[in-house]
């Protein structure tokens, strides 16, 4: 960790007037870690915690707005979330540990960095950390790396669980910055690495995530967040699937599906969702959806297991959602 200046503005306006090499601090569960490892080297840390952005409130359209500074724990436990967006609550609870969720915020979750071994180790070449140095993950120990959305420059996954559920539900990210306010669909918020992997998302300098809007959307019991990982708690996903289905007389009216652990961003394929709509759930239908979701997957040295597991996890998750038996995050048996 290198010396930095610290400020804690109490207005959004002040928080946006920042010099170069600034990082915003919310829960700090990722940023502080990265600073200790010398991966993030901000000259200025601007603490957002004096701003009031932790509200969770209903929207006129029947949706829900969750504040960027609401903690993951408070969000997952909020009655409006547990009652109306259990898929989101489930995805949050599948991630990290209770201690981390107590600190980590929703805005921070969107802006966390990859857990790629090579990104985290300043002795190793990494285009995401040090543009132009190369990608050590390619050809390296890349069991945890992405198989979708990768480029020659980067194969790191975006590690969030929460964002997978947000992507499935087509949430909207609300931003405010020097150029004013804007809203961006979550599916467009994170970037593919292409040849600029250091840009994780579309945030501009001085722009801050203020809240996330969940559309009015109900799956009843027909949803699940299924996460496969190397141990049953406190590990990032090898493959995860957030699925929500609107069912009517055993027909899928609307399908929402996103994947984690396999992509360089929360992975959504609208064609796969369209393919499910209007159909009766069946293993072969789900297999088709899996094929569609995984189109273009590329494996590297160590991560072929992801491609082997992914279709099975997709099929299981869709089966759970169709059956109305969501995966429990406390009872670890997968039904």
């Amino acid at each position: 960790m290198r010396q930095f200046s610290y400020s804690r503005p109490d207005t959004l306006d002040a928080a946006q007037r920042i010099p170069e090499h600034t990082r915003y601090l919310a829960g700090g569960t990722n940023l502080i870690d990265l600073m200790k490892s010398d991966v993030e080297r901000p000259k200025h840390v601007v603490d957002l915690n004096a701003l009031s952005m932790s509200q969770i409130e209903e929207r006129p359209d029947g949706g829900l707005r969750i504040g960027a500074l609401a903690t993951n724990a408070d969000t997952a436990a909020h009655p409006l979330v547990t009652e109306r967006y259990p898929l989101l609550a489930s995805a949050i609870l599948a991630g990290a540990s209770p201690q981390i969720r107590n600190r980590a915020t929703n805005g921070g979750n969107l802006n966390q960095r990859t857990r790629c071994h090579y990104f985290y180790d300043p002795d190793m070449a990494c285009n995401k950390r040090s543009p132009g140095t190369g990608c050590s993950a390619k050809g390296g120990r890349n069991r945890i790396m992405a198989i979708l959305g990768t480029s020659e420059a980067c194969i790191a996954t975006f590690p969030s669980d929460m964002c997978v559920a947000l992507a499935a539900m087509n949430a909207t990210v609300n931003l405010t910055g020097p150029e004013g306010e804007r809203s961006v669909p979550l599916r467009d918020y994170h970037r593919l690495p292409e040849n600029t992997p250091w840009q994780d998302n579309i945030l501009r300098a001085g722009e801050i995530v203020t809240s996330i809007d969940l559309p009015p959307l109900s799956f009843g019991p027909h949803h699940t967040y299924l996460k496969i990982r190397d141990r049953l708690s406190f590990a990032f996903a090898i493959v995860s699937v957030a699925a929500g289905l609107q069912m009517e007389n055993n027909t899928i009216r609307k399908a929402c599906i996103a994947m984690g652990g396999v992509g360089t961003k929360p992975w959504c394929v609208p064609e796969a969702e369209a393919l499910l709509e209007g159909k009766t759930p069946s293993p072969s239908l789900f297999r088709d959806a899996a094929d569609c979701l995984l189109q273009g997957a590329v494996t590297d040295r160590d991560n072929a297991a992801k491609l082997k597991l992914a279709p099975r996890v997709i099929i299981r998750a869709l089966s759970q959602a169709a059956a109305g038996t969501p995966q429990s995050q406390t009872q670890k048996t997968i039904f």
Partner: peptide, 15 residues
């Protein structure tokens, strides 16, 4: 390369 407790997986209680 997995030189931390996040990526070197010792069993969690749930395991």
């Amino acid at each position: 390369m997995n030189h931390n407790f996040s990526e070197y997986h010792i069993p969690a209680h749930a395991d």
